[in-house]
Nucleic acid binder design. Structure first.
Lengths: 230, 230, 230, 230
DNA sequence: TATGAATGAGCCTTCATTCAT
DNA sequence: AATGAATGAAGGCTCATTCAT
């Protein structure tokens, strides 16, 4: 199992959208990663409001002046990081969508991806949770909207295809089903990243919940399969 | 449908646990309500960090000095409000548990309660979401723990009883099932209170999602019934 | 001759217009004066931009927090002080206007007032000069506009009355004359308050210029009388 | 009327006094002009304190590193520009002094020069006003002193010559008269360059004041002539 | 010499908390 | 008990200046 801290990761960044300055684009990748990881960590731990830009700079080993040479504001830094999360999620959905297999294969891959990426980028995922709870919707509306669009498309496509092929019950309303499935996925994600939801999962499933990915995946697959198999 | 603003509500407060001072207990109920409602509103709108105690005092029509006579810190005030949320949830679970009906009746009541209380106490519910974010989990650990215990008990009791009575498939693992059902309920709650999740629900279900409680309730019941009916 | 530093003065403040908070209105006059005098001094010495609010607070012997309890921003503090200057000028013009005497008597009183008030409120006068030079017109437009209106009214009234009574040459265009007379008064004021213009006056009139109010007043009166006497 | 923007001008620079580095002297004239014009523009618009050296460098199309290769500090750049203003003023006085004509011819030329140069170098003239403000007098003491000396010499020479020739009343004290005349010229200059004094002139003379150079020149000449003609 | 990334002191402002009345 | 003025640490951000390349 991958328990590697997120802080050691190389960050995949968008080439099109950017919230950083030109200067930031020119610095070494390792430095970029240090900065973005420090920021992700701080935002994830404290939320947007309580996150301290000076602390992020210090953690990243750069001066506050440089921080502002790279990002014009706290908001810009936050949005850049949001965008990273978006890129990752998009990649995940795409990867699953492109693979072969029936609906249930895809949903199972979705579960495994949540388990994998929650461990690879725990803080990024935590941050995603912050965004949805704090009064930050105005900041990240564009980004989160894009995520939802991708998710919706992924699910409805897979569901409709499944119903056409007869591998999915025709009784299930596609939109409704997409909604509940994504709900289950989102809360699964929270359960692997948020301290609060980790505790909660242990209470429901048992102290060893976090070390039994297989069991949980199977449990969720069974729950969903019973509901959607024809 | 109850669209009454939360701010007019009389607050049910715990008699055992308390985060307030003795002084607070002695003031008139109406004043208590004014204070707590002002606090709920401010915390829900801005999050814990950005919430301003001086503003809460002003909104409540008391002096900041009195505020600190009633609660020793911002944290204490926040925890008091958390506790209110806990009391409400507890009451809801209790109410449903005490009623007659099979498992599906109870789960349907759960859905209706979410829809009802999300509208009755929207800001309180928003706040619950805040709590689960990283920055605050340390604050409210014991409160949320209590909520989870109640939820777990509610679900497993209902499930096991259902399986005994034969109204629920014996294939479903009780803990697993309890977990996924509660996940669905939690995200439903978010979908009625958080700005972010409201938008998301509209994307999945349609612009009129928030005005079709019945449809959503039926959809979720169908999804769950197919999975858990014997 | 009055060489008393401005810092010892009691400030005349407007009762109608205000840029301060309610809190400021309630504190003792002596404290108000300390704050306003500290502010005047700092703004006069450094100009608006370079003036440091924290330094003003320290000079006034209050905390920065209190400073912001009294004035919501640096700008508000600046405008309050502007307004004080306006009040004084208004009073001066009024005082002169109400007195008896022909045009030249009034203009002579104007000169004496400049000499008197430049010494009584040197820093306030310096500040007035700053306002007109820095890119601050947007800040103090209202106030300076009101000053100009008063000045214009004062001069044109006196001039037209003088021309009617025959104590002033009918050849002089009233507006033009008002303009040039006020120009002379303004630069006289600068010459008594600004370090730069003080030096300049010494170069033109002699090292003892600042101790010869009478001589300068007489010189200016002669200059003007020759131009405007019928 | 010359309404040409100052930014296109070629800057006349002092050969003796210098605040720049040796390096600056070696770069092409066009580059020098770009830098100085950018600096004048920025200083005039924002004042010394709020002027941003990095912005000036960017406007001038050079790197901030080069800027500091040319001028050792913000102050040095500012002083260099002051010196340019000094050179221009010196040239103006010299030009008028060398021309033939009686005192009033010369004073009229002075007025026209103010009107001409205020439009040719509006920003430079604005800056002159800044200099005289308290915050900066220490910076430019020697430069402004030189200007005053020239002005004094100009006026007293012309006045004494006029009195000798009998074209000027013998009643006028030469120093006093020089002082008041220069005062009138200085405020005329302000009235053509400073936003504040432009507005003021409009209030006194009329909205079209800035388009009636002739009228104002005549008005001032009349005012002065009545005072000083024998 | 030219570049522009890097630096960090300093500034305006906020707000939880204290305390005299 | 109630009030609200007072406090000051802390945070986002700017910009003159330095220095490695």
């Amino acid at each position: 199992m991958n328990t590697q801290k997120e802080s050691g990761n190389t960050i995949e960044r968008s080439k099109t959208q950017k919230y950083c300055t030109e200067t930031f684009l020119k610095i070494p990748e390792s430095k970029k990663d240090r900065i973005l990881n420090a920021a992700i960590s701080e935002f994830a731990k404290n939320g947007y409001q309580a996150a301290n830009i000076n602390v992020i700079a210090k953690k990243a080993g750069i001066s506050i002046g440089s921080m502002y040479n790279y990002f014009n504001s706290k908001e810009a830094l936050f949005l850049e990081i949001n965008d990273i999360g978006y890129r990752i999620i998009k990649t995940v959905y795409k990867g699953i969508n492109d693979k072969k297999g029936d609906f249930f294969d895809k949903f199972e891959k979705m579960i495994k991806s949540v388990q994998l990426y929650s461990r690879k980028y725990p803080e990024l995922t935590q941050m995603y949770q912050e965004i949805t709870s704090e009064g930050l919707s105005h900041l990240s509306k564009n980004i989160t909207r894009k995520i939802e669009d991708i998710a919706l498309e992924f699910y409805t496509n897979a569901i409709i295809k499944g119903q056409k092929e007869g591998t999915l019950t025709a009784n299930a309303d596609p939109n409704m089903t997409a909604f509940f499935l994504d709900n289950l996925i989102i809360l699964l994600q929270y359960s692997y990243t948020s301290e609060y939801f980790k505790e909660r999962m242990k209470i429901f499933i048992g102290e060893d919940a976090l070390e039994n990915d297989e069991k949980i995946a199977n449990g969720l697959m069974a729950f969903v399969r019973r509901s959607l198999a024809p």
